[in-house]
Computed example of a mutant assay.
Amino acid sequence: MKKIILRLILGLVIITLLDFVIGSTLKHFYFKQDSGFQYRTTHSLNYAEDKIMIFGSSRANHHYDPKVFESKLKMSSYNTGRDGTYFFYQTALLKTILKRHQPKVIVYDFFGSFEYSQSDYDRLASLLPYYEEHEEIQEVLELKGPFEKFKTFSKIYPYNSLLFNIIMGNMEFNKEKNSDFQGYVPLSEVWNNPIQPLKIANAYKFDSNKLKAFQEFIALCKRNEIKLFVVVSPVFYEYESDVSITTCQKICLEQNIPFYDFTKNDEFLKKPEWYADVLHLNQNGAKEFSGILADSLKANVAYLK
């Protein structure tokens, strides 16, 4: 019996040591990256100190060209957009940034749904590498599940699905492939198909956590005297109505937040050559859109004129 207990203890010690060594190695190379989407998240959270900051998912990342904003508004700009990240990620990101930096202007690219979806909670895994360092992220990640705080005792857990991306992020050839400017990643593809109608579900169960996260984002901007603009950037499809956009607009109206919806803008609906696909502008479309939006911001905020 003593031998069995000793072997169990020895096994636990070996597993703990391996977890520590492997996890520490993955952490080292994760934060050693200086290109790619994981590097941009690290830069957004820990280093970006720009006056204009863009928040959102892939449509933010590919639609807002900081060069255009900097040229027109004469203020530094950084695009924090990351593919597949929505309400929870954006609020956690802002709360963390505000510990060390207060931007003047935030553009929030609204995309997604207020409908409950487990996948939106699962996507919070992208913040796991920062769990240990930032308590603001700990609060949000605990929405993912009641055992997250215990899982993070493992040093490997935050990186267990990121090995390939960590390796690629440390390769020299990957830097050119993932080139960006101030977080913005341009798309070069051109959409050649005609515009089509899209049926959007307008009846669903609202997720109170998503609504709370979005409203908290607005409250944080107000509390820190940040001028917030909520934007629904262009799409290349036609639709009758979208309850998520309508709800977002209503919240913005109640909170006196400028709201811009470009999804039914005639100019963008007539230019398939400005799109990479039906949801994303290419680099030419992004340049046009960024210019139009920058002019709108300039007209709205006195110190940007």
Rank of each mutant, 00 (worst) to 15 (best):
K2D: 07
K3D: 14
K3R: 12
I4A: 03
L10T: 15
G11Y: 03
L17P: 10
L26I: 11
L26C: 05
S44K: 06
K51E: 15
I52P: 12
M53C: 11
M53N: 00
F55C: 02
S57Y: 00
A60M: 02
F69M: 01
E70A: 02
M75P: 00
S77W: 03
N79V: 01
T80K: 04
G81V: 00
K95R: 13
T96I: 10
K99A: 14
R100W: 11
H101L: 04
S113Q: 07
E115R: 12
A125T: 14
P129V: 10
Y131A: 08
E133K: 11
Q138H: 05
E139Q: 09
L141V: 06
K144S: 08
K151N: 02
I156A: 00
L162W: 02
I167C: 04
K177C: 04
F181K: 11
F181M: 01
V185G: 05
N193M: 15
I195A: 06
Q196T: 13
A201L: 14
N202P: 04
L211V: 14
I218M: 05
N224T: 09
Y239P: 00
V243K: 13
V243T: 09
S244Q: 03
I257M: 02
F259R: 00
F262K: 01
K264C: 00
P272T: 15
Y275K: 03
D277N: 10
D277P: 01
L279I: 14
N284D: 12
A286L: 02
K287S: 06
F289I: 04
F289N: 06
F289R: 07
G291Y: 02
K305F: 09
